[in-house]
Structure formats: structure tokens, C-alpha cells
Design a binder for these strands. Structure first.
Lengths: 158, 158
DNA sequence: CTCCCGTTGTTCAAATTCGAACCAAGGTGT
DNA sequence: ACACCTTGGTTCGAATTTGAACAACGGGAG
């Protein structure tokens, strides 16, 4: 055995998985970004904000909750919500239970824009990711990446 | 059948896979970015440039080849190579066979910086992704995402 | 009731990213 | 040799992202 603690490098399979993840992630983001911008004038980030708001009980969420779901920085969210506000897709309301709180709320126009943007986006996700994989691969992917996400959520909070 | 072509939305499993991918990707990038910056003063992108150069035959690659491997824009690469050049980790040489060509070459200092940065980075990738998954999950991930990447490489070129 | 500390959201400067425009050079067909 | 389309890299301006600093509030220990 070595006296110096040589790191455990990635073997061929591990490297393939890691590279695959990085490359697929970059390529996918690129394509989706392009499609959404061309098709609806939205960035992927903006689209996801609309999605999360739309899925929320009253079409509205606290800024912090939204930032958590999006996995982005607070300042980044502030910026994007301001952009969406200018576009008339989202409105800011103050939170009743907490004076400091700000609630982002989907406007009618925001809902309509999302309704129009969603089909094209989903179709592309399907074409580039979902339909490329078998049912089994999808299941394993969901399971595995769920674990990874959970793991990451934990020691990120502190 | 419906006369209007209603899009095929994602079912629960498909959505889980897709969300898992997006969330894991964002969280992972965030953590790696932080670790690399704190530990070695490099961005993930800069680190990857060093890695790809280091893996190349003579520690050098044409700009375009490098951009392909990194999955980034040409202008983005120009910027980052300039940064690395300022740090003394990469040098630009002109290409013998093509006057227009520019070759990015790893310097000794660049090699040393990479040698020092790699263990911590690999350890984190292992901790957050590789070691969280089973051997089977890793294999499926590599296989599946390889297919996805291949699919994306194809209709992206035109 | 206060004193403190954690939270919430914004602002700020700096770094990065992208696409479009651009210049210069390669390669091809005639 | 010549016109012409593609390639390779850089430059430019606009948009985005981030972490740190900040101000104001919430909430519990004493």
C-alpha cells in the first residue's frame, strides 16, 4: 500500500458516467435555451419560474421557496423576476404573514405565455431525452438522480 | 382520436427523470464551482479546459476541437483561454498547418496547477455522484446519457 | 419586554456567457 | 487564375449570474 494517500481516480465506467452527465447536461441546456428563446422569447430559467409558479397552489410562491425549487441564487432570482415583471408575466405582492416577504404571482398573461410555450418545450425534452431512453433506463435515471439530488440538498443547506 | 394535436405531456416517471436531471445538474455544478474556486481559484470551465488539454497528445489542442469537447461557444472559449493565459496556465501557439489556426497548449505551471486541483475535485465528484450510485446505476447512466449525447451531437451540427 | 441572531429580499460590482458581426484564410469549381 | 462559399478565431455589446454587503424584520432566550 502507498504511504501517501493517493486519491481514488475514476475508472473507465465511472468516468463514462461522469462525462456523459456533463456533456449531456451542457448540450441539452444549449438546445433548450435556443428553442425557448426562438419560440417564445423566454430563457430556460424564466420558463422554469413560470412552471413552478403555475404548479403552486395559487400560482404564487415566496421568493425564497422559488429560489430553492429553481436551485439558483437569491440575487439571480430577484433579477429574473424583475425581468418577468417587466414582461407582464409575473407580479410581485407583499406577503400578509411576513412584512419582509415578497410573493411572486403568475399573471393571466404569464399563464397564457406558459400555455403557449409548454408544448414545444416538452416536445423537445421528449425528443432529446425521454424518447431516447427505454422505460427501464428512465426509471433508473429518476431513481439515481433523485438520490443524488437528495444527497446534495442535505449538506448544502448548512 | 383528438382532432387537435395535443402534445404528449410527461407522465410521472418521465417527469421524475427530467426533474432529477435538471436539479442534480444544477446542484452539482453549484457545489463543484464553489469547491474548485475555493480550493484552486479555478472555475469549473477553466478546470475542464486544463483537463482536456492534459489528456491531449501533446498537451495542446486547436481552439475549435477544444470548444467541441467543452460544449461551449467559440467566443466563450476565447475568453476563458485568455484568462488562463493571464494566469500562466495555458499558452497560445499558432498552428503550423493552418495560418488561421490557434493552438492552446498547457504550460508546466498549468500542468502543476491541474495536478494540485484534481484530487479534491475528483473526491467531490465521487462523494456527490459516483459513490451515491450503485455499479448498475452507473452503467445505465453512462449508457443512457451516452446515447443522449450522441443524439444531441448529431442534429446540433447542422 | 429587550438583546441577539437568523432570515428575507435587494443592490452592487465583477465575472462570465452568448450570438452576431467581422476579418482573414482555406478550398472548390470553372 | 478567379469568384465564391466555408472555416477558424476574435471582437463587440447585451444579458445573465454570482457572492458579498446591506437594511429591515422575526423570533426566541433570558
Amino acid at each position: 500500500m502507498s504511504t501517501l494517500n493517493e486519491p481514488r481516480w475514476l475508472d473507465q465506467d465511472e468516468m463514462a458516467a461522469w462525462r456523459g452527465f456533463v456533456v449531456a447536461s451542457n448540450l441539452l441546456n444549449r438546445r433548450l435555451e435556443r428553442q425557448l428563446k426562438d419560440d417564445s422569447g423566454l430563457s430556460h430559467q424564466q420558463y422554469e419560474i413560470l412552471v413552478h409558479l403555475s404548479a403552486a397552489p395559487a400560482g404564487s410562491l415566496r421568493m425564497t421557496e422559488l429560489a430553492d425549487k429553481l436551485v439558483t441564487s437569491k440575487s439571480g432570482l430577484t433579477y429574473q423576476v424583475t425581468q418577468l415583471e417587466r414582461m407582464g408575466l409575473v407580479a410581485r405582492r407583499s406577503c400578509p404573514s411576513d412584512v419582509r416577504g415578497v410573493i411572486a404571482e403568475l399573471t393571466d398573461q404569464g399563464r397564457e405565455t406558459l400555455r403557449q410555450a409548454a408544448p414545444g418545450h416538452v416536445a423537445l425534452v421528449r425528443e432529446l431525452l425521454i424518447d431516447v431512453l427505454t422505460r427501464e433506463q428512465l426509471a433508473v435515471l429518476a431513481e439515481g438522480l433523485g438520490q443524488v439530488s437528495a444527497r446534495l440538498r442535505l449538506d448544502d443547506t448548512p
